[in-house]
């Protein structure tokens, strides 16, 4: 369809805001990077970056923090996208954590996330001396995110101080930082989950096939459907993976991401299912629930 130019629709208003934010970062920072987590939000963020800097390529690399427990389809999709677009992709794995054998089963989700995600992210930011990092978080996802700035200041030790955030007025983003300090930037702050899917639909943006339903090997644990993506997953006595029609509303480490039973094989079907859904998207994430106000604490420690 032809977009109306008389009055910007809500998606075009959100799109323009995100592009404005991305251009501010490139204009104000020396060495930005885009955190690319392979999910639908990252796909939308990357698409917006292509638009923002066209006909140039986005003038920053993509960074994927690989916990080594991502779905295999995610990794395949990641490599394909980077190759197709000709973008530099940095894959960061916490080698120390790997040597210690940290995994979601024996270490638990909290330790696994801290070591393989938060620590790994901090390692990468320190190693490449990135001074700004884009993340795809949205304010509608979680309570503590609802209060975070679009330019979110981090100390030289990557900490977020929710009580001492810079006022952010109009579309004037203050990106001035001292030595070793950095900014996390959230260009999708004002998007909702529905906006994301509508935009994916409107702009024909490729997403990982895991969002679409198909028969997949799963086991049911504590009411959550966990996909057995490879043979590293220890099965408990009596557990046998069975093929069920499932899809994922949100993507993370496969042992920590619950699937939903679904027959939605196309984008409109996914959107329909979401419109009728009765639970919010992060419910499938084990990590949000492992301690009280857990996201706020993780963020203060440097998690995205």
């Amino acid at each position: 369809m032809t977009p109306s130019f008389d009055r910007l629709t809500h998606l075009r208003r959100l799109e323009a805001e995100s592009i404005h934010i991305m251009r501010e970062v490139v204009a104000q920072f020396r060495n930005p990077v885009m955190l690319y987590s392979i999910g639908k939000d990252s796909s939308v963020m990357l698409h917006l970056a292509l638009k923002a800097f066209h006909p140039a390529k986005p003038p920053f690399p993509l960074l994927h923090v690989d916990t080594t427990w991502k779905f295999r389809e995610m990794i395949g999709f990641r490599d394909m996208i980077a190759k197709e677009l000709g973008l530099e992709l940095i894959v960061q794995i916490n080698q120390e954590g790997l040597r210690q054998g940290i995994n979601p089963f024996s270490a638990g989700s909290a330790v696994h996330t801290d070591v393989m995600k938060t620590q790994a992210l901090r390692q990468a930011l320190d190693k490449y001396r990135f001074d700004a990092a884009f993340g795809g978080a949205r304010r509608d996802e979680e309570k503590s995110r609802a209060k975070e700035r679009i330019f979110s200041f981090r100390t030289s030790t990557h900490r977020w101080d929710p009580k001492n955030q810079r006022p952010e007025l109009w579309n004037l983003y203050n990106g001035r930082i001292g030595k070793d300090e950095s900014i996390r930037v959230f260009p999708l702050s004002n998007w909702t989950e529905l906006d994301i899917w509508q935009y994916v639909h409107l702009e024909n943006i490729p997403v990982v096939p895991l969002y679409f339903a198909k028969p997949r090997p799963v086991v049911e644990r504590d009411g959550t459907l966990i996909m057995v993506d490879d043979d590293r997953m220890p099965l408990k006595p009596g557990e046998t993976p069975e093929m069920r029609w499932v899809r994922f509303r949100t993507l993370g480490c496969y042992p920590l991401t619950g699937g939903v039973e679904s027959r939605a094989e196309t984008l409109p079907e996914i959107i329909r299912e979401m419109l009728l859904a009765t639970t919010s998207e992060r419910q499938g994430r084990v990590i949000d629930h492992d301690q009280a106000a857990s996201m706020e604490i993780k963020k203060q420690e440097g998690y995205f």
């Binding site: 809500h10 196309t266 409109p268 079907e269 959107i271 329909r272």
Partner: peptide, 18 residues
């Protein structure tokens, strides 16, 4: 019919303002 419903819904959504 469900798909037609969603398509109609999305078209209307795309016209909404903020």
């Amino acid at each position: 019919d469900a798909l037609a419903e969603v398509e109609a819904y999305l078209r209307r959504q795309e016209e909404m303002d903020l």
